[in-house]
Design a protein around this nucleic acid. Sequence first.
RNA 1: GCACCCGUAGCUCAGUUGGAUAGAGUACCUGACUACGAAUCAGGGGGUCGCAUGUUCGAAUCAUGCCGGGUGCACCA
Length: 685
Amino acid sequence: MSLIKIQERLKQEVRRTALELFGVELEQVNAETPPRPELGDLAFPVSFELAKLIKQASGVKVAPRSIAEQLKTKLEAAAEVSRVEVAGAGYLNVFFDRAKLLALFAAEKPIEPTEVSPFPDRPKKMVEHTSINPNKAAHIGHVRNAVLGDTFVRILQAAAERVEVQNYIDNTGVQVADVVVGFMHIEQMDLQEIKALDSSLPADRPFAYYCWDLYTKVGHFYRDGNPSGEPNAERLRLRTEVLHALEEGNNPVAALADYVATRNVECILDTMERLEIRYDLLARESDILHLHFWDRAFELMKQAGVIRLENRGKHAGCWVMPFESHTGTDEHESDKIIVRSNGTVTYTGKDIAYQLWKLGQLGLDFNYKPFRTYPDLHVAWVTTTEPNAEILPEVPRPNFGGGVKVYNVIDSRQSYPQEIVARGVAAVVPEVGADASVHLSYEMVALSPAACEELGIELSEEDRARPYIEMSGRKGLGVKADDLIDRLEADALREVASRHAELSLEEQSATAHEIAVGALRYFLLKFTRNSVIAFDFKEALSFEGETGPYCQYAAVRANSIFRKLDNDAVRSAEELIRENSVAADGAKVSEVLAGEAGTEVWSLVMLAERLDEVIAQCAASAEPANLAKYTFTLARAFNLFYHRHRIIAEEDQIRRAVLMAVADITRRRLTAALATLGIAVPERM
RNA sequence: GCACCCGUAGCUCAGUUGGAUAGAGUACCUGACUACGAAUCAGGGGGUCGCAUGUUCGAAUCAUGCCGGGUGCACCA
């Protein structure tokens, strides 16, 4: 029996009683945690609402307090409740039977996560994240996207949902084309030479780093070396030529681009693997193109009357999607162009086709082949045009696509095109609707002026006065993910080495890695999605205060208590708690948990047991920051508990057993919360 | 011009969807290690929740209007 179930039962009891005593049907009953633990374990502010509803129904004015008094006796009858108090203007404060619940919670063992499709019968939710243009290394802004997406996936899984993780690979777009222009026309390299260069690069300066620098050179190349100058039309035409070659496929330029894009994808996946971020499917834009997904979507949209061909005005010859809610002005049209007058499709059009496929509404499918096998044998697949590719490997292939709900992790600047995609899909298949497409939007990661200075970037007077400076892949302005992880690992290693000289370098490095991941993931998750992160090295590299390592440290401390206790002591303490909950002398446990000191201990149990509720809320609101904040609060509460109570040295057997049960419940919940954030608990730190 | 987001302690941010005395981290000051590991803990100062009006038992939270900042509104992706 979990806390969430007990709450649910009490809510039902309140509803039933309200109907029985006052003839009022409550739609939902809110339960909240009282501001201070002395006020109880659970509070219902329901009497205020009832007073209002009774007055509306019968015209009779009833004081909230008297309503609360009547509900009180009913709630007190519940087995888990020891007493109920009416407080303030009419709050119902519930106090649980602590000894009974402690035994209940202590007996709950964590569910082992299963690797293969944990919930095969559930409708599938799709999460697309990362989706970095495969023309350069990942920077910290890309990592925010990936960490948010990955953590949301973990939250859905923790909430017993079935999830498919996709990473969209835009291998035929402008950004890839630009790097191809760089290789062909600046470096004057052919495919063989690029391959030779690639294999000659050192591990700490991989191919994606080379492309990062080359990409910025291309920007200068287009403007003849003058960043503020006019673009050179002739050189821009090189980009257009490459783009056309990519769209057609089956030519040397496309082969070169495919190599460049694929190698960048590999580098990006290597980076993400460092942060425990993995994928089920890499969906490539070239395959959407060559398997004619768009042609089918175009037909569907025409049939549904979603788009129309303009024959006059400045959009003559274009297929557009009307957008009534936006009124047009001279500069800004109200209609969104889906097919250009030259017959090519815009990004939004392609995205609608892809979205329809994700929801199983396109009637076409990709072909697939394995791309990468992770150490745990999980396989990331990639789409392909080759029809027989999927029968080649012996690995059983999952069925991709066909989700009931699609979450797209994309930054907030794209909320307008995302809205169009959702509406387009809803117009083609009204029974699916716009609610099936969720734009999981988040604000960008920018650089603090101090961070720019540290990177050696010159700032204008104007920029220096701004709170933050936007990163730009085009200008090469940003913090590369691998560089930051390297620094975090180096810092952590120094600390670990000074604390645990007895460990081998291998063990020290492994621990430092887990700490680095904890620091970075927590740093990116502690901000809510719609808050801009002004990246600051000092903050990001900190291991103290509200950080991942702080949370990890609390769990490590908890584990170290149990490492020092022998198994028999643990087992007999568990026995003691269990027996006390049923035997008449359960009073002893209650005694330990009573009074001011007992309430302080008990409040930690209540906080730990709220994890399920927090996970459910995060899944519903798609806001991982809530879980991060909760995890920190739990770690902080445990550190306080740890400081105040000496468990091993405790001489009173009952008291010791209670403290052990509380510590055990907390460490299990804390470990589970951290795992859901993608943060491991090191052996020592 | 239109749409969306933001404004809370010196700084960086939370605030359980309208609930009880608005909270953390950081910075600053002071104290606690012969240790279940101090990457920790305790105490202190620090607030007109941008401004105004309204809605009601009750507003940082909802509505309207201002002020200030950001983003988007391409035959780019």
